[in-house]
Nucleic acid binder design. Sequence first.
DNA 1: GGGCGTGAGCAGA
DNA 2: TTCCATCTGCTCACGCCC
Length: 693
Amino acid sequence: MENKETAGDADRPWQSYHTVYTNAKAGMEGVDKERVQRIVYEMSKGSKYFENEERKEATIREKIENMRARCAQLTATDLSQYQKVADKRILELESTRDLSRIWLHVDMDAFYAAVETLSNPLLKGKPMAVGSMSMLSTANYEARKYGVRAAMPGFIARRLCPELILVPTNFDKYNYYSDLTRKVFHRYDPNFLAASLDEAYLDITEVCKERGLTSEEIAKDLRTSIFEETGLTCSAGVAANRLLAKVCSDINKPNGQFILPNDRRAIVTFISSLPIRKIGGIGKVTEHILKDALGINTCEEMLQKGGHLCALFSQSSADFFLSVGLGLGSTDTPQVRFRKSISNERTFAATTDERLIFQKLADLAEMLSMDMEKEGLTGRTLTLKLKTASFEVRTRAVTLQKYICSSSDILQQASRLLKAELPVSLRLIGLRISQFNEDGATAGLDPTQISITRFITSGDATRKSTGDCCSLNTDSNNHGFMDDTEIDTCIDGYGTDSETHHQVSNQRIDNKFSNMDDSNCTSTNDAEKSEEPENLLRNASADQANISTAIGSTSDSSDALIRRVSSTACSSSRNLEGNPNNNVDGENQVEVRSPDNNGQIWWIDNYKCTICGAEVPASFVDERQEHIDFHIAEKLQEEESGIRSRTHMPRQRTADKNLLSSPRKPKRQKSTPEKEVKHIPIDLFFMKTNQKF
DNA sequence: GGGCGTGAGCAGA
DNA sequence: TTCCATCTGCTCACGCCC
């Protein structure tokens, strides 16, 4: 992909090692790219990761060769025909051009790093990155001068910049500052689209009119407000659509802005020389393919090679490329869209130990179940993701008759999928649930049975799809919907029982103030060391017995399941580093005190926040203060907006069994994103639109 | 042929 | 010393079934 990768490759093999680390990014203009590329290559060479990258590269090369071959087979007549198709399509696309709106894209400058510098001014002016030795989330501009950047492993970054300061992520802080920026955005466009914690799109058409200001003045005004109210700088881009606004915001980074007039000629001129990689949606692979197969380097060339694009790509892809060439993008404010999947994945030291692997699977099932419960989700497609020791990624999916959300259901199905892959050496396991129940129907039900069941249980069924959904396995009515396959799974699957959960929980507590790195997941933590293989086997047997009992629907098993759900759900709040379980003891969790009406915060047992359940020992003075500040700010914002907080709903709902019979909250109303201790999933804010237009 | 399920992969933050 | 993440949306290709 690099220009120089030809004759000198034998002497400088790193030039053909394609990584994202050498791509131009704001603040990296003066970087010695060759040095960075050499170091990245030398540190990666020979590793399994490197070998896998080479395999992937070979696959892409093969794809490109195929495309070239197909190109070569095109006759002049074929090309003429495809060119006509392209010309027609270009006219159609052009007719959709909308220059009536003014979009502004705001991008906070090195957001996480900037927030960390605000909290610790000693970091100012020093090369610093947020993340761990495994992976960096972002780097400040001082670090970028050395070639250090987001998505780079920390150990490589350290080699590039030995004095680099590494700061662990703290999503509480980022959420807090993100909320502050959003209050500002709201004043300019109440319907702004948050693309992530540090990015947003605003339709400023109306505010320009109302205030009688130009888009440039509005952008300047907004950036000033952001700085005054947060102490953080941002960059802005203004253009006729979101695709262009995003490109524009990158031009004068950091702390700058760029205005592209709503004028067709200006847009076409701007886009014509733009490298295709600058466009959102064109990543490393697409760039590689377009460049090497078709010789397309700039957006203008998308139009020039329109015939080839129509010949070689699907209609939707060709449309996207052509619209990029025309500088078209979304101008509408998209409808609110709900999330389509929810997942969890964890990397750990590669292992072939099946007991360990199943234990990690159980952890993930538990975490996923809690996340689903928090959002009141049930789904029926479960996807298991595996990354082998050689970095090969496999996914295995199953679509069920019924919607599930309980950890035991998830684990049963996931175990089935995993068993088929054994033996295998794994370094990552992930679980994803999709195909959500749009209807808010009850977990465990066959979707075809929803209507009639609702009818039968009218007035009561509605409560069952939210936080208490996981307890539905205790409902004897439910068993009518369990099919033979599921019974098989229950009998031979790796279930979990409360004892196993207890051990899992303890393991997490041990790590809860450590960074979110491999150490959380490796097999060498204390809790797992103490878990003797015999105990694991006993637990596995107990799991099977427990699940079999559940099928039998005895009241004992129901109670056990309720206790299990209750104890795990009580620990739903995650700590700052993303550790998913604060559970100490299911028994202790029953007592939950509400915050007082004045928003005062105090600590249960001198370590647990009464509002969100986050555990911060007394010795963590700064962290405690930050935590309190966060809740106070949250409270103030709620009072201002008049929106009732739902922050600790899941905790209360599951902790108090009496609430199991209370009416459920409306399902997945995301107009006000939930504030959690854990960072807010990006997609809750990101109303992703069709990139093709 | 269209819908659905599955698996792989790309992209972005 | 450390040794390449996590989460989500989306597209595409393929096979199966009606």
